[in-house]
Structures are given as structure tokens and as C-alpha cells.
């Protein structure tokens, strides 16, 4: 099952994948255990001529322990999953690092507007560069993304980087990622945003350091 996940190319993608994997193993074990017991009971206790069912009500604590203790184990496993997950969550969503590069992504029906601050590092100045649906970032650098929306709610999704975040009009939501492998990755919208939702898509280009410098030179020749 886990092999269906797309290739992970971000620093924290592994943390998310390992949580998914942990849950997958735990739930699979439970699935086979409970379903096994279930099927076993169905076979063992199928109707047989002359055999009367056992009269057990299961109300007394000693009897109910048969269901309460497994439920307690479920609780312990659940809490384990949650505590393991808390670290991954804090890493991805908790504290957003300042970033080597800042990009502003503004969603609108039905495009991503990618805004670069330019060499001065500030948004809203003359050297800003705006691209539609194309984002270029260097590999192994922390990219800080500010998400905005012009109209409805969209969701910024980078499957290969395991990043997803809703873009809500009226809010600026901070996110980040650090790509570990150069390449071209898709950047779809994951929240129903109108008739053009299907097909609202962009590309993230992760460049090696030198190639990224070349791209920067192309767009800001003076710097």
C-alpha cells in the first residue's frame, strides 16, 4: 500500500510518511486480528443441531473486561500515534522557519499567482516578479511561502513534498518546505473552488543551485 505514495522530495515528507506507515502497520495488525477473531467465531459458533448458545450477558466487570481491555489497548496505541504525530505536526505546521527564500502564493479562480520579492527581498517593490502557475526554487533551501487568496478558499497541494495548506481569503497563512531533489513537481488545488477547480494546477521547478542562479540572472539581470 505504502508504495502508492508519490516519491517524497522534502525534508519533512519522511516524517509524515513514517506516521502514515506507523498507522498503517498498527491498523493492519488490528484489522487482521479483529477480523480473524470475528471469522473464527463465525465458524466455531455456527448453528449446530442440539447445541444451545451459552448464556453470557457481559454486564459484570469481570466479563466486560474482555471488551474493555482491548479498548484500553486501542486507547494506548491511539495515544502513541498522536504523540509520535505531534512532533511531525510541529515540524511542518508549528514554527515556520524564516527561510532562505520567500515566495508569496496568491490563489484565485483558477490559477496560482507566484510572487517573488526580487533581490531586495521585499514584496510590493518594483523588482517583484509575478509568475502564473510556475514556481522556481533552489534545491536544499528553506522556502517560506505566504499563502493568500483573492476570492474563494483554495488548497495549496504539493504531493511530492507532502505539503498541503488551505488558502483563505482575508488571511495570510505561512508555510514552508525544503526540497531535496531537483525536478518538476505538480502543484494542484485540493479544495473545491468552482468550475475550474479540476485542472487548477501549477508546476514547482526545483533547480540545482547553479541552475537556479542562472534562472535568477535571467529574470533579474541587474542584480
Amino acid at each position: 500500500m505504502m508504495s502508492w505514495l508519490p516519491e517524497n522530495v522534502s525534508t519533512y515528507g519522511g516524517d509524515i510518511d513514517s506516521i502514515i506507515r506507523l498507522i498503517y502497520y498498527i491498523t493492519s495488525a488490528w484489522f487482521f486480528l479483529t477480523l480473524g477473531v470475528f471469522l473464527l467465531f463465525l465458524i466455531l459458533y455456527r448453528r449446530r443441531e442440539g447445541r444451545r448458545a451459552t448464556y453470557i450477558r457481559g454486564d459484570r466487570l469481570a466479563e466486560a473486561a474482555w471488551i474493555l481491555i482491548p479498548a484500553l489497548i486501542v486507547l494506548v496505541l491511539d495515544l502513541w500515534i498522536d504523540f509520535r504525530g505531534a512532533d511531525a505536526w510541529a515540524k511542518v505546521k508549528g514554527r515556520v522557519p524564516p527561510g532562505d527564500l520567500r515566495v508569496q502564493v496568491t490563489a484565485k479562480q483558477f490559477n496560482w499567482e507566484i510572487l517573488y520579492p526580487g533581490p531586495d527581498g521585499k514584496f510590493g517593490t518594483a523588482d517583484d516578479l509575478q509568475l502564473e502557475n510556475e514556481m522556481h526554487v533552489p534545491v536544499n533551501k528553506v522556502v517560506r511561502v505566504t499563502l493568500k487568496s483573492k476570492d474563494v478558499i483554495h488548497s495549496f497541494f504539493l504531493p511530492n513534498l507532502r505539503l498541503k495548506q488551505d488558502a483563505v481569503p482575508g488571511r495570510e497563512i505561512e508555510g514552508w518546505f525544503q526540497a531535496t531533489k531537483p525536478g518538476r513537481y505538480e502543484m494542484p488545488c485540493a479544495e473545491l473552488c468552482g468550475f475550474g477547480h479540476s485542472g487548477m494546477n501549477g508546476w514547482l521547478h526545483v533547480h540545482p543551485a547553479d541552475e537556479y542562479q542562472k534562472w535568477v540572472k535571467e529574470h533579474w539581470p541587474t542584480s
Binding site: T34, V37, F38, F41, L42, Y45, R46, R47, R48, R51, R52, A53, T54, I56, G58, W66, I67, L68, P70, A71, L72, V74, L75, D78, L79, I81, D82, G85, A86, W89
Partner: peptide
């Protein structure tokens, strides 16, 4: 996330109770 996980406990009890009902029964399919 924690409240969500807590809610799995009562449902686990429900399912286990259903399975435990089969134990020692005389099941007609």
C-alpha cells in the same frame, strides 16, 4: 486530534461487544 482519538474508544467497545456476542453463540446465517 486527541479528542478525536478518544472517540475511538467507545466505538472500539461497541465493535468488541458485537464480536464478543458471537462467542459461544448458535449463529444462524
Amino acid at each position: 486530534s486527541i479528542t478525536t482519538i478518544l472517540i475511538s474508544v467507545p466505538f472500539a467497545i461497541l465493535v468488541f461487544a458485537m464480536i464478543a456476542t458471537l462467542w459461544g453463540g448458535s449463529i444462524r446465517f
